[in-house]
Design a protein around this nucleic acid. Structure first.
Lengths: 189, 189
DNA sequence: CTCGGATATTCCACAGTGGACTGTCATGGG
DNA sequence: CCCATGACAGTCCACTGTGGAATATCCGAG
């Protein structure tokens, strides 16, 4: 039975299974589309969680279909595990932003190279914003939860793009006196 | 020698070691303070990367100090590994936002409970915004890279807070125009 | 019929998280 | 002096998350 606590990824799979039985493949695709913008997950982990949840009795495996396709359906235990998860306080978000990391160490980078990185990221974010706006315009107006998460995406991408706009000037402004800040600061402990 | 490619966390440690020799403990604290807001890392991983980098010749262990304190210093190989990392295109950011996940499945949640979650997150983000603004006001104006990442934090937190403001209304109605022209638009600066 | 591409799962190495555990040193109260 | 406390410093472990390789199946185009 293994009463390890449900992690958020496993819980989201249970959430999707409320729609009906699905295979790992389907769940991966659906999750990617519906929550992929703010909850990263991978095929590997989907299958791993599914296997574990089956052993734990939260889902039930159906008969294999074609191409080894393995559908799973929600059990009552799964439904109540999901409900328990839904009732727990979510922890704060985590962000890992490699571009910001590089900017942090910008003094060791070639400014032109850094500018390239920024431009290519700008393109990515512009495309994402456009995609969200299309979805928001075309989306089901009766699903406020979907609208709410889309709205987050739109606001986030707008903030990032505005930051990009302000960035070149901000980086030039400090380019005067290389000033203080050399090595060996009071950090040695 | 093990020429596994440098990951971003290891690279950032090499970046900090440009300042001078430091122990894993110091590096953890420094990284938490300087890049912790957009690059999560843990003690465990810092020590693991340090151990690996020593075997790979990227850092050199000094003599143990008191309390088993183990300082590391940058080698030439480490310096050039860092430079190589600095020159590679950073991948897009990843975000994992448990609250958004719960909102996605909002139809299965008690609305009052969901509202509690939102309020407690609002407090966290308000505090973070205030912290960033304090730092931006007090910070060294000669470090444009620090200012740039702080500016990101400020814009991000503002966007999140504005989204929180719009959220209750969006969830109550059908929120059919989630995207266009909302209050997020012109106020970035 | 066969080849390429889409479907579907499995496996693995590595990266990242969080907490438990151990041990050291400094200091202040008894 | 002794020891309780807490900051410092590192180690270890289980679990979670990432990305890609390997494999196998089925469908449709040619």
């Amino acid at each position: 039975m293994k009463d390890r606590r449900l992690n958020a990824t496993a819980a989201s799979l249970l959430g999707f299974l409320h729609w009906g039985p699905m295979s790992g493949w389907d769940l991966t695709a659906l999750a990617q589309e519906v929550i992929g913008d703010f909850w990263s997950l991978t095929r590997s982990q989907v299958y791993r969680e599914l296997a574990w949840m089956e052993k734990a009795g939260l889902v039930r495996a159906g008969a294999r279909g074609s191409r080894e396709r393995q559908p799973y359906e929600l059990t009552d235990a799964g439904r109540s595990a999901f409900a328990a998860w839904a009732d727990t306080e979510p922890s704060p978000e985590t962000i890992r932003f490699p571009l910001l990391l590089k900017i942090s160490f910008g003094r060791y980078l070639d400014p032109a190279r850094l500018a390239e990185f920024v431009e290519s990221h700008r393109a990515i974010h512009a495309r994402r914003l456009a995609g969200y706006q299309t979805q928001a315009a075309a989306g089901d107006p009766d699903d406020p939860y979907r609208s709410a998460t889309l709205d987050f995406g739109i606001r986030y991408e707008r903030a990032v793009l505005q930051w990009f706009d302000a960035l070149p000037a901000a980086l030039r402004r400090g380019a005067r006196s290389a000033g203080r800040g050399g090595p060996g600061g009071g950090r040695g402990g």
